[in-house]
């Protein structure tokens, strides 16, 4: 009798308390709603972009496309403005990311070298800039006196090196790569260049990937330096073109093609959604495949020291 009771208890599935089930239901529901609310604006924009301009203008789209009409894509993809912006952005992203990495990685490496005595002072010089800055206007005056106005490098150089990223690189190199490896190489007669290029850099590929991604996304999305330093429209990156279309409601893309005035007014709104899709979709498609690198970067950055 007693033995049977014990056996029964042993074989019984662990009972999930009723309170726990309720708790879980609440957690899952809240998260599901949260997720839906987050993704809704993106789906809405996508739906609007493939609905007819009239449906968009009349506000007939709520979640799914009200109709299927790619005329706004024809307008947007036929606009030189968009393509010039795209070409400029790609150029700036590639050149900018190269420059940023060339600044950040060696600096991070040097600051990670524990046998380099000026390291502490250098670290101070770097960190100080995180807490105090001259401000926009003095920076503008410096950039102008360097002759970088209306120059690609005016967009790229101010802000090309983020001290935060330097610290992330430094943290990675000093914690994830055994110091003994470098010491052994030193004994074998390797100089500091060789240590960096042949030993440490190949072992730091995960953090290099993180840096490339951080900087590339940063350049892709930034507009402020372009606003300050690029007045020549032909040099504008995509984001500045988007500002004209989305915020200043420049409808030159919607015009032409011989539609009626009403059609053009419809189109002027519809192209906003389409330009958003055209400019943002590439990044949103790529990031899920790269997200583990982003997460890694954020997590290394949050480690103090």
């Amino acid at each position: 009798m007693e033995r049977e009771e014990v056996l029964r208890l042993l074989h019984k599935k662990p009972k999930v308390a009723k309170a726990d089930r309720v708790f879980e239901a609440v957690v899952y529901t809240v998260l599901a709603v949260w997720t839906l609310v987050t993704i809704y604006p993106l789906i809405y924009v996508l739906s609007c972009s493939i609905s007819s301009p009239e449906d968009v203008y009349m506000g007939r789209v709520f979640l799914f496309p009200a109709s299927f009409d790619l005329s706004s894509y024809a307008k947007v993809l036929g606009a030189d403005m968009i393509w010039t912006g795209y070409a400029n952005t790609i150029l700036y992203v590639v050149v900018g990311t190269l420059i940023s990495c060339a600044l950040t990685l060696p600096a991070g490496y040097v600051l990670s070298r524990r046998d380099f005595r000026p390291r502490g002072v250098l670290m101070g010089i770097f960190l100080f800039t995180m807490y105090f800055s001259g401000g926009t206007i003095p920076t503008y005056l410096v950039v102008r006196s360097l002759g970088l106005i209306n120059n690609m490098f005016g967009f790229i150089l101010p802000g090309a090196m983020s001290v935060w990223n330097v610290i992330v690189v430094r943290t990675y190199m000093s914690t994830s790569i055994a110091w003994e490896i470098q010491e052994a190489a030193k004994v074998d007669g390797a100089g500091d260049f060789r240590l960096f290029l042949v030993i440490v850099l190949p072992l730091s590929m995960p953090i290099v990937a993180v840096m490339v991604l951080f900087y590339a996304v940063g350049y892709w999305n930034s507009y402020f330096n372009a606003l300050l330093y690029l007045s020549d429209q032909s040099k504008w990156p995509l984001q500045m073109v988007l500002r004209e279309v989305l915020i200043r409601s420049d409808s030159s893309i919607a015009g032409g093609g011989g539609g009626s005035l009403i059609d053009q007014a419809y189109m002027a709104e519809a192209i906003k959604y389409t330009t958003i899709v055209v400019s943002t979709l590439p990044i949103l498609f790529i990031y899920p495949f790269l997200q583990r690198y982003f997460i890694k970067g954020v997590m290394i950055g949050s480690v103090k020291g």
Partner: peptide, 10 residues
Amino acid sequence: FVSVIVTVGM
């Protein structure tokens, strides 16, 4: 990953 311009535009 959506730029601030697109966000404000939205």
